[in-house]
Design a protein around this nucleic acid. Structure first.
Lengths: 141, 141
DNA sequence: TATTGTTATACTCTATAACTATA
DNA sequence: TATAGTTATAGAGTATAACAATA
């Protein structure tokens, strides 16, 4: 066989894990009345103040989709548009103080939940797992 | 410190991996003009023929949300409602032959993509990873 | 009355296409 | 002309609440 055997249990395990983690993210976001999209938006704005075009690229969204997302987050006081001084077409998107507080809170809660998820592993197993994951997601922040 | 240290790199790695796998699922589904929701629906119907109530529980959706999902999948010839013989209120949802072919195809493609994703690991590392994942997701199929 | 499922309604998220304003 | 961003429109997905039909 030329193609490597997919190894079903690994694939299934990864997909299951994926849904478990996404569930955590969605649940924690919902507890603060946020969607996953809003959570991702705020997560990116934690340490950046990008323009719409750049932000759309980060989130892999069309700019028109992003307009609405930013509108809705803005009307809830989570982000704001900051007009660019040099280019009067452009604006930069910034998380408000409230948005920043919220994302920090939710991220802490997600961390706690993920910590529970990996609790069945011993600490050395967790270290190994982290190393494996680092090999799989080179772009990890 | 009483609470266990969340271990940021592990949490980040897991979340990153999660988005990578979700991307694969979404991309492979889209290549066959399916949404993630439709993919999950067909995945469940691979080896079951549940009623709406049971199906809503599997998918963690309200029954009203499921009505629309099944409608749309039905209008595309992927699933069908089979009236129950005993209970004239009830029906059972079944994947059509076309739906079954499609889910088998997409699942094979997902497996191939996930295999690529874990290619950076050696085969013994992959075995270890599969074991870790099995400990984390007891309900894996 | 309780249960199975659908319908009505509303909102978020997303895309494509057309548009505005500025560069 | 090209670029930054918005608006118009459409459709999927989801929820809550009200409903219909059957048990």
């Amino acid at each position: 066989m030329l193609t490597p055997m997919p190894d079903l249990s690994l694939v299934d395990g990864l997909v299951q894990l994926t849904f478990a983690v996404q569930d955590i993210l969605t649940r924690m976001a919902e507890e603060h009345d946020l969607s996953l999209a809003q959570l991702r938006l705020l997560g990116i704005l934690r340490d950046r103040e990008p323009g719409m075009r750049e932000l759309a690229r980060y989130l892999d969204l069309e700019k028109s989709s992003l307009s609405g997302l930013v509108d809705r987050a803005g009307s809830r006081g989570l982000v704001e548009r900051v007009p660019s001084a040099e280019d009067r077409r452009a604006a930069t998107i910034r998380a408000t103080a409230r948005g920043r507080r919220l994302i920090r809170l939710v991220e802490a809660e997600v961390e706690a939940e993920v910590a529970k998820l990996v609790a069945p592993l011993s600490s050395s197993e967790r270290r190994e797992l982290a190393q494996f994951l680092a090999k799989l997601t080179p772009g990890a922040a």
